[in-house]
Design a protein around this nucleic acid. Structure first.
Lengths: 330, 330
DNA sequence: TTGAAAGCGCTAACAT
DNA sequence: ATGTTAGCGCTTTCAA
């Protein structure tokens, strides 16, 4: 592979001149530039990023760690960040923590070792990710997206889960639904916790017994399917199921229909996130739309501000989501 | 940030000793090791990957370029590769070409600049990606996955599209479907071309007029929706629609049902790929299951063999897919 | 077993 | 405008 020395020799100039032409950092005579460009082209020269970054002590690289690369919801966020990064001349290194705090720690360390200048993280566990984030925070700016971590002074961007759940409950109440229940995920991440807490507290004003009907499992279709059967086995069924996310709602709808119930005739079902699947399930799912562009854009903005040295106090931004009414809520 | 020099000073040993302890490359006295480890721990030392990789002239890093990170089908492949890479002690740098040959070229160049030791690529265009791949091939081993490129001597792993289409057509013939049509994507990638060609050639044996009923657009739900209306507008409708992939099939099913037709009663519809959506659409889609694990594993195997210096001739591996019969084909 | 020192490929300060 | 050279942080000879 051709090195800068080879290009210099080929062009008949010094290696410094080659560097100057290629990085465009300083004035170079036209003659030199043409000779260097031709030599570089001829030899197929490509700057060695390792050497260049080591020398200039800057990588112009960001790291991003997400819990699961197979989750389209996270990918939408990745794309927003990638776009902002490109716009700022940064590259993005994407890592999958596979929802595991140990893997997450290894990934973050690998990123730090690669000298990233900032990290965007969607923490995989509200408690277990805290130490990893603190470790990263000692070296570079870090911003969390979608899920928050309590007790850490850092920029955190998430949706206002409480506002979303309240919108859902108000909507159901408006449709004269009275006996509600909630099917969500166990409290390992802030989104699971906040949505459940919002439901429990807000539904109490509408119908106190509904505040007690809560099932927690995972944010998956499979859990939704199981939960549906548990709900049906639990005495008189509710007339509406508020779900912690869309996947659960899809699973519940599928099982309820398989058991011969009508959705939303017998039972209304709502989701959260507004993933693409919502429009394919029958009936299409009423849900809370995540303002992913806003979250991504705001996250990138905050991170770059830190990289550029802002000393503004770390802020927790909560973006208000929008209710999307479809067929599943009658 | 602590450097190796700081650790050496803290531990009271030479820089070389610290390096030896941390890389584990040579014998070190127990005393030294303990002192170094303690000092590194205390200072929160982390090896600078840039310096380390530059010096040892090895990055133990692979690059992967896929056409669209939002496509779960490609992500499944990414996960297979990531798994193999981890197992070999390699890290994976993932890039999105956004289905654009210019972006693809930029991404590949960025990977080469970062000194990756090999590249896995799902080319975004059968013609437009060729030059980029050739450029990469000059510097490191490259393996293509899922889509092939003609006229390049390299390892290419893909599904046997022809076998898949033949299985679909045989299946439909067995269900007494006679008037077929094909809805696929324009011929920019090998999968689109091979599936269409296989349909056109094989269906001729069954029913020559069917070989003429071909609509080409994109591999999307939206195109499927449009195509359904075109098919219905085209005189007497077929009794089966063979689709180039599952997304098209989902779009066609949705529109056909919206127009009051019964699937599969009036018209059978089949897909290709077996993405998750197939089981959520009603009726569930009969399709061809992609052997993603096999493709990924084989791709990784071939790439590592090249990295280790195999001189075996470049091979094009075609993995035979499996028909998955569901409700949409009657 | 250990330390001194060379050098990976590049950029930037300095000198001309 | 250009060339010479120091040095980014690390690994790996080489010598002791």
């Amino acid at each position: 592979m051709a090195k800068i020395r080879d290009v210099a020799r080929e062009a008949g100039v010094s290696i410094a001149s080659v560097s100057r032409v290629l990085t465009g950092t300083r004035q170079v005579s036209n003659e030199t530039r043409i000779a260097v460009l031709a030599a570089a082209e001829k030899l197929g020269y490509r700057t060695n990023y390792l050497a260049s970054a080591l020398r200039r002590q800057a990588t112009r690289t960001l790291g991003m760690v997400i819990p699961r690369i197979a989750n389209p919801y996270f990918i939408a966020l990745v794309q927003m960040i990638e776009e902002s990064a490109q716009a700022q001349g940064y590259e993005l290194l994407l890592c999958d923590s596979t929802d595991d705090t140990d893997t997450e720690r290894r990934r973050v360390r690998a990123l730090l070792s690669r000298q990233v200048e900032g990290i965007i993280i969607i923490p995989c566990d509200e408690k277990g990710s805290a130490e990893t984030v603190r470790e990263a925070l000692r070296e570079v700016p870090v911003v969390s997206l979608d899920r928050s971590i309590r007790g850490i002074a850092m920029d955190q961007i998430c949706v206002d889960n409480r506002a979303g759940i309240i919108a859902i409950i108000d909507h159901l109440a408006g449709k004269a639904r009275r006996r509600l229940c909630f099917v969500g995920a166990r409290q390992t991440v802030s989104t699971a916790r906040e949505r459940m807490e919002a439901y429990r507290e807000y539904v109490r004003e509408l119908d106190p017994p509904s505040a007690g009907r809560i099932w927690l499992g995972e944010f998956t279709v499979e859990w939704g399917e199981q939960a549906a059967d548990r709900i049906l086995a639990d005495g008189s069924p509710p007339d509406a199921v508020v779900c912690g996310n869309d996947l659960i709602a899809a699973g519940i709808i599928r099982t309820l229909r398989a058991r011969g119930l009508d959705v939303p005739g017998d039972i209304a079902v709502t989701g959260f996130d507004d993933i693409e699947l919502c429009r394919f399930v029958e009936p299409a799912i009423t849900t809370v739309h995540q303002p992913l562009s806003d979250i991504g854009a705001e996250g990138a903005r905050k991170l770059f501000a830190r990289i550029e040295g802002t000393s503004a106090p770390p802020a927790r931004v909560r973006i208000v989501p929008r209710l999307v009414v479809r067929a599943s809520s009658g």
